[in-house]
Simulated scan of single mutants.
Amino acid sequence: MLRFSNFLFPEATTPEDDARIIAESLEEAKLCDELGVEVLWLAEHHFDGNCAYVDPTTFAAAVLAATKRIKLGFAVAQVSLHHPVRLAEQMALLDNLGKGRLIVGLGRGTAYNVYEYQGFGIDWQEAQGRYEEAEEIMLRAWTSETGLTHKGKFWDLHMPRLRPICYTKPHPTVLRASSSEEGALHLARRGLPFMMNVQSLEATRTRLARYRAELAASGHDEAVIARCMAESWVWRNVVVAETDAEAERVAIPAFEAMQAHRREMREKVYAEQGIRMVKETVPPARVQVEHALIYGSPATVAARMAEIDRTGVGGVICAFRLGPMPDAVARESIRLFMTRVAPEFQPGRAAAAE
């Protein structure tokens, strides 16, 4: 059964929009809780308005207090920007506040926005190493009953037992992001599920097939393979309206404006400093309408989701509010999706239709 979630990734085009967008984002979280969305994912981006609430750990506390049943995930916490002990403490607290509703999505940090590293005084070329060391520290901090001693490249630590202890045992659910096929295969070898960034449908099919094959080749049994596939997620931008024409009218301008806003600060930094983290010779799937955006009537969107379902992945991370899209439009899109698209994927629906 394909599962659905909402990536709450709200853009504030100007600083004057910040307060309004943050308030609207909290209301969107409440709506998702009421409509039965399984997971609400939070992003982390700094300085550019691409993610209005900026700090997902702080915002997560407000969301958990305002909701009752929805799970809360990070897609992702930019681990390389954080002290791992502080981040482990914050996640343990959130795990207690949500009574086990937390999914700790971990990633190295942005692969595109050098200014996010510069703003925190971190060399972006150290991001992967910092992430790997920090993840190890966090897992040990959550599970050690006697504290830990760690001497690594980036941190030298000697600490008592972490408090508060985790609500979930042995620690909150952890999910790693992978933006490359090699990263996905590395997680397959470890028997771990993953979050995939926006890819074309064909690339999604291919990567998931190779991921599944690598799980088997690494000696994992069918139960582990099934669990890893069921707990893995892919990301798409989604707009639902009553008709295909109305969805197209709303979705494409919002998507294109969002991509332009996300490029703006990168291009400014490149013009001023000559630094570009990733040199892309062709437009990647994440910026192409045909690959990154699913839009249309409920029937059209359901058909597109069925294509993803056939890849065998467990769930779709749907970003509904795109760029400058008005709050009311995004909320209606979520309602239509949860009342007229998601029910098509409930257990037994296909058998009943036959």
Rank of each mutant, 00 (worst) to 15 (best):
R3A: 08
F4W: 03
F9N: 04
A12P: 00
D17W: 03
R20T: 15
I22Y: 07
A23V: 13
V37F: 05
V39R: 07
W41Y: 01
H45T: 00
H45I: 02
F47A: 03
D48R: 04
N50T: 13
Y53L: 05
Y53A: 02
D55V: 12
T57P: 03
T58L: 15
F59I: 11
R69N: 11
P84M: 12
P84D: 07
V85K: 01
R86F: 10
A88W: 01
I103F: 06
V114P: 00
E116Y: 11
Q118E: 10
Q118S: 08
Q118K: 12
G121I: 09
W124Y: 13
A127D: 07
A127I: 06
R130S: 04
E132M: 10
R140P: 00
R140A: 13
T143V: 09
E145M: 06
G147F: 09
K151G: 13
K151N: 14
D156S: 15
D156M: 09
D156C: 08
M159G: 03
C166E: 09
L185E: 06
H186Y: 14
L187N: 00
L187I: 04
L192D: 08
L192H: 13
P193N: 11
P193E: 12
M196A: 07
T204P: 00
R205P: 02
R207E: 00
L208N: 00
E214C: 11
L215K: 07
A216E: 15
A217Y: 05
A217V: 11
H220E: 00
E222T: 09
A223M: 13
I225E: 12
A226W: 14
R227D: 14
S232D: 02
R236T: 11
T243Y: 05
A245D: 14
V250C: 07
P253M: 05
F255M: 06
E256G: 03
Q259E: 14
A260C: 10
R262N: 14
R262Y: 15
E267V: 08
M277W: 09
E280T: 03
T281G: 14
P284F: 13
P284K: 07
V287T: 15
E290N: 15
H291C: 06
A292F: 08
I294L: 13
Y295S: 02
Y295M: 06
P298Q: 14
A303P: 02
R304Q: 12
T311I: 02
G315R: 11
V316H: 01
C318Q: 06
A319Y: 12
F320P: 00
R331T: 04
E332D: 11
I334D: 00
E344G: 06
E344R: 15
R349Y: 09
R349E: 12
A350L: 13
A352M: 12
A353P: 03
A353T: 12
